[in-house]
Nucleic acid binder design. Structure first.
Lengths: 172, 172
DNA sequence: TGTACATCAGTGAACGCGCGTTCACTGATGTAC
DNA sequence: TGTACATCAGTGAACGCGCGTTCACTGATGTAC
């Protein structure tokens, strides 16, 4: 009746809250994440989260940091030609995460050292691969723009995204 | 005491509401726009907007449509080489508008014919200029990605955005 | 081994907030005769 | 020219909602002697 009454083990509320936030993020996007709903999903009182995070933004920052690390790890092993496709695929598969990571929260990273570090590490990886810095930046912008345009259904024609990406990024 | 008591003239509440939404959008971004605040700014009761828009989304759609038209008109006369720079400059100067236009609302354009038409017209213009369709698409994605990365302060180094854009888009 | 104590994760009530939307209404405008 | 009427833009009260955050608290855990 003690620990097993909760869906998480002793000391893991923090992780449970992040998982809940993740689920909400994937289902309803940025705006669907609320501290209260996370607490509800973790089976805990509305204010329990404040034992683990200073406020809502701190929770989101921790979440974004976690995703930047996973994102970096996922892209690192890919061959240069496949990394662009993987980037876009990630954005299309997990729009909520993508938008959180690259959204307005990013500008507030200086206030959240963990996020700042994770983001910078990921960005450094993205820019380190190819030859010139400007070339890397251009490649990044191209892929990033493609991700956004597909995500927001801005590209007319209703063509299969996967095929389009393969064609546009084929040679890079 | 009749019409002059309001900051708008007879029949112009609709325009006044859109202007108010625009101001909020430019100041606080997407989330800062509320029907109640728009009404407040127009000097009108909280529910007056429903005479002119079916609901909040309809107002936002009308606003986005208006901006797509202006966006298209602003880019049309520019020379091909300058259009990319103008695109990015618009995004940086008016982040709220840019995010509204190219955000999740765009996926709901089919429900708002005016927005759908305006967006498609703008997109057609963007893609019609350059030679091949794929080339145009790539150019668009590059510029769009650059706009987003700069907007979200994702590009490390703190370099002057304007200079960076000029350098990266120089040859296109 | 047993007792006193400090720690601290989680509780629950409460505060104050703003929002979108509905509904019956008022009162000015302009038309039809 | 004057009166009866319909239209319809805007009102204001109300509904129900969920949110972030505070605060004093409880009660289990584990440590020190």
């Amino acid at each position: 009746v003690s620990a097993s009454a909760r869906p998480y083990h002793h000391g893991d509320l923090r992780a449970a809250l992040l998982d809940a936030a993740d689920t909400l993020l994937d289902q309803g996007g940025d705006g669907a994440v609320s501290l209260r709903e996370c607490a509800r999903m973790a089976g805990v009182s509305p204010t329990a989260a404040y034992r683990h995070f200073a406020d809502k933004e701190a929770l989101l920052a921790a979440l974004a940091a976690r995703h930047f690390e996973a994102f970096r790890d996922a892209l690192a092993p890919a061959a240069a030609s496949a990394r662009g496709r993987a980037y876009v695929r990630f954005a299309l598969a997990r729009p909520g995460r993508f938008r959180l990571m690259f959204g307005p929260l990013l500008a507030r990273a200086p206030a959240h050292p963990v996020l700042l570090a994770a983001a910078n590490a990921a960005f450094a990886d993205l820019n380190a691969r190819t030859g010139s810095r400007d070339g890397a930046l251009r490649a990044w912008a191209l892929v990033h723009g493609l991700a956004h345009l597909l995500l927001d259904r801005a590209i007319p024609g209703g063509e299969d995204p996967e095929a389009l990406v393969a064609r546009l990024l084929g040679g890079s």
